[in-house]
Nucleic acid binder design. Structure first.
Lengths: 330, 330
DNA sequence: AGACTTTTTGCTACCGGTAGCAAAGCATGC
DNA sequence: GCATGCTTTGCTACCGGTAGCAAAAAGTCT
């Protein structure tokens, strides 16, 4: 009794061929209303539903999309996943969540996605190295999209927030507030996204006639790394020579930085050192942090990605503007 | 050129039958070393890899597991997802992430998972109502597991932290610290998990001769709801009659509560009102909150779940002990 | 009623694998 | 040289659908 009913079984009981059963379940198929009703009654009785696996094999479409994630320390990723799954599901697609790590890297994940015949691959991570992808031969494989990050790979479109504009907006705000000794906290150096943000940051302040810009390096995108970087800086630099504002590459780094600035050094944010972040994580709004930050247009980015996956929009890199969120920390 | 190579094509080029090609890719299959080498060379040349979709259709095993999530506001869910995907992937399984919401409820998700022939369903959510499942007829469908929550459904095992023990541990700690006017903040009332926690809380304090225990009701498991609940309470109750410690059903509620207690009412935590949570979210350790909380044994829970999915362990409800994490907030 | 059109139904071939049987290939013992 | 047993290979049937053609049934017109 435990086996699923198939179209053939329904057909037998309804006294039609299995193709008529299939047609009853295919919207727009040519079938007489009378036999549709008859088939549906039997299908209901036998609890029949079409096997999507078999359909996928025949149509070469799985309606599944791989989502590669490597950064589970950033709560921001959760809202991304929420929006993304929501948007995919509303289009009849489903997300296959793949955790990228030392044991299962991007190449593995792509080959796996390919073998599973997934319709598309969304790379939604931070730490991956695009060079790795050059070596993979994926002839008839699923199209790849890079979400919330730049893409260096030819033919692989990126869907990203306009970070140059974002950094400029943030810096303009900070400059307007009167800060003149800016510092920048960057994540892992090898990443191109980080490079772009840093470049924009330096360019802005140079244009304001400010050349000195300490750079605090965080090894990972985690609060602990942000904390460590700012701890090192504050231990090295005496109060007189310190920065008066710190722009962090993302909110999580900023949280770690604020924790150390306040708890370990007894300094005030923003009075002694102002702090700004990037992402507008859930916690950024909490009074405990009250972080000035920049919000990525998550919904628009996700919609653009899904539109490309569905072929509604041409596959090409899209850069969307975000929104400056001013709060008390800077 | 863009189509994927199939076993048949490899077979033709290698001068063998397609079954020999398949055997070359099947560990432990009976095949001569010489032909294995020959096949592999051609496969490499044509960039052939077996089509897992076709395999799934034939074997009735997809090696995919549905993970239903409905609570994307809790950063804790992210660490759960990380561990879960890691564990699944290490066993050759993959997680299909399904976002449960008003438009796509559990019944939809289960039917969808069934049609996609997924091997198992993990319900990893908070707000779903188990009653809904009673109506679904899933004859030969995938086994369902409830993770990090109780299960009321007969035949559906739960893998959960021992919340009764947890609440007792937490309360014992709070009592030991001298608190005598406890309050409890509960999430949505209809949920059985919430009921269990509340019951354990009341039982403990009653045993200590304390009968008065205000209950602050949060409508969702979100910081905003936690904030709102505590705001309402503090506005209603004059300082003299207030609780001296608040145990929240999860960390996120506790964060919201602390925000309001400190920022809106200028009270000190723990001096005026101590606060404790549940989950040990990433942010619980941050100096800004420094939250006393209880850590669920995520890794053990996830391992137990996957072991049952793989059939290594009998499918039955498992309750695992967690760990009290004492910090400054209580 | 017969010719013609349109709708409905059944069919073959296929998607790319798996399962397990039967035949072929090969080495060994007598 | 031949029976014997093991390894290797090829085969048919199948998993549960889709695609599109051909035949059958129903409807329309004169």
């Amino acid at each position: 009794m435990s086996k699923r009913a198939t179209a053939r079984e329904v057909a037998e009981q309804a006294g039609v061929s299995k193709w008529t059963v299939i047609r009853a379940f295919t919207p727009g198929a040519s079938i007489a209303e009378s036999s549709r009703v008859k088939v549906m009654a039997v299908a209901e009785k036998l609890n029949y539903r079409p096997n999507l696996l078999a359909r996928s094999l025949a149509t070469n479409l799985t309606h599944q999309v791989a989502v590669l994630v490597d950064d589970f320390e950033n709560p921001y990723k959760l809202s991304f996943l929420e929006r993304l799954t929501l948007e995919l599901q509303s289009e009849g697609l489903v997300a296959v969540l793949i955790n990228i790590n030392e044991h299962f890297d991007h190449v593995h994940a792509l080959l796996n996605a390919d073998q599973r015949q997934l319709d598309a691959v969304i790379m939604c991570g931070t730490a991956f190295r695009t060079e790795m992808l050059q070596d993979v031969r994926l002839d008839g494989a699923a199209p790849i999209f890079v979400l919330a990050r730049d893409s260096q790979i030819p033919g692989v479109p990126a869907i990203n927030c306009d970070t140059t504009l974002a950094i400029k907006d943030l810096c303009r705000h900070l400059h307007g507030k009167g800060y003149r000794r800016p510092g920048f906290m960057a994540g892992p150096k090898t990443l191109s996204t980080a490079l772009g943000r840093r470049r924009a940051f330096k360019a802005f302040w140079k244009a304001q006639g400010i050349a000195e810009m300490p750079e605090l390096a965080a090894h990972h995108y985690s609060a602990a790394s942000g904390a460590e970087a700012v701890r090192r800086y504050l231990n090295e630099v005496p109060p007189a020579g310190r920065i008066d504002v710190l722009l962090c590459e993302n909110d999580v780094l900023a949280f770690g930085a604020m924790d150390v600035i306040r708890s370990e050094f007894g300094l005030k944010v923003p009075a002694d050192i102002a702090v700004a972040g990037f992402d507008n994580t859930l916690f950024a709004a909490a009074p405990a942090y009250d972080l000035t930050t920049y919000e990525q247009p998550v919904e628009a980015m996700v919609k653009a990605t899904v539109a490309m996956i569905l072929g509604r929009e041409p596959k090409k890199t899209v850069i969307l503007p975000g929104r400056l969120v001013v709060r008390g920390s800077a």
